[in-house]
């Protein structure tokens, strides 16, 4: 496990479904920039460059020098890491309003993950040097970055504990819930995980086999917890999945 390398790299904004807003609005809602004076925000905006990435192409590759910090404004990005045996592991899914490649804020690092566009995506980026300069001028950004990194460390600690101690069902339920809260979109049937997601991706995220993932997902589909499509998962009954993830007791009152 190479958790050390991945901790704190991706800084997420909580309400991550902003899109099609003016850049200044998006920046204002991005946790890294929260609490900045309007003048500082304007400096941040002036230093930003826009970029596009077609579905299937990469913002950066694992092992590239980390020279840019990205903020996704449109689309979906998968952050993956290559195992020594050549297999790819999906570490995180990123939706609009989320920073990635933030390792570039530290000097002389390499990107520990690859950032692949799961669909046509767009965003802005900052050169590492210019963002570092902004951080030095506006210490609030350093504090923001620290709290975001602490959040990320906690997420990975939790995932590590899950892998070490929990049954596969709970791990898979938690992985789906995490993806749903990161990229979920409310649709008529439930919450669509808005990301091309294979059974293999889920197996890698939960440290199990494709066969096991398929078996559990099919059981859940029969129980009405999820609806499965080709590379698509809809969480039909979020509470049911939470109950699996958290080992909740059934509600005490009987349902009508």
């Amino acid at each position: 496990m190479r958790f050390r390398d991945t901790i704190g790299l991706v800084l997420t904004l909580k309400a991550s479904l902003v899109t099609d807003l003016p850049l200044s609005d998006i920046l204002q809602k991005t946790a890294l920039f929260s609490g900045l004076e309007p003048a500082a925000l304007q400096a941040v905006q002036l230093a930003a460059h826009t970029c596009q990435s077609a579905a299937g192409s990469y913002f950066f590759l694992q092992g590239d020098p980390a020279e840019r910090v990205f903020l996704l404004t449109r689309g979906r990005v998968k952050l993956t890491q290559m195992n020594p045996d050549g297999s790819q592991v999906l570490l995180r899914a990123v939706g609009p309003g989320t920073l990635f490649g933030a390792v570039a804020l530290a000097q002389g690092e390499l990107y520990p993950v690859s950032a692949e566009s799961a669909e046509d995506s767009g965003g802005v980026y900052w050169g590492a040097a210019s963002l570092q300069e902004l951080v030095l001028r506006h210490p609030q950004m350093a504090l923001n970055a620290m709290s975001l990194m602490a959040e990320r460390v906690q997420e990975f600690q939790q995932r590590f504990r899950e892998l070490a101690t929990e049954r596969v069902e709970r791990r898979l339920a938690r992985a789906l819930l995490r993806l749903a809260s990161q990229t979920g979109r409310k649709v008529a049937e439930g919450v669509l995980i808005d990301l091309p997601l294979t059974r293999q991706d889920l197996a890698e995220m939960t440290g199990t086999t494709l066969f096991t993932v398929s078996r559990i997902l099919n059981q859940w589909e029969t129980r009405g917890l999820v609806t499965l499509g080709r590379e698509r998962v809809i969480v039909r009954f979020p509470h049911g999945l939470v109950a699996v993830a958290e080992d909740l007791l059934p509600p005490q009152t009987s349902q009508p």
């Binding site: 749903a180 439930g190 979020p238 009508p256």
Partner: peptide, 21 residues
């Protein structure tokens, strides 16, 4: 279990009440 639940954004008050009977 709604407090602190990551799915609370996707459930309405009505959903939650129904689930808990």
């Amino acid at each position: 279990a709604c407090v602190g639940c990551s799915m609370a954004a996707f459930e309405t008050l009505q959903d939650a009440a129904r689930i808990y009977g």
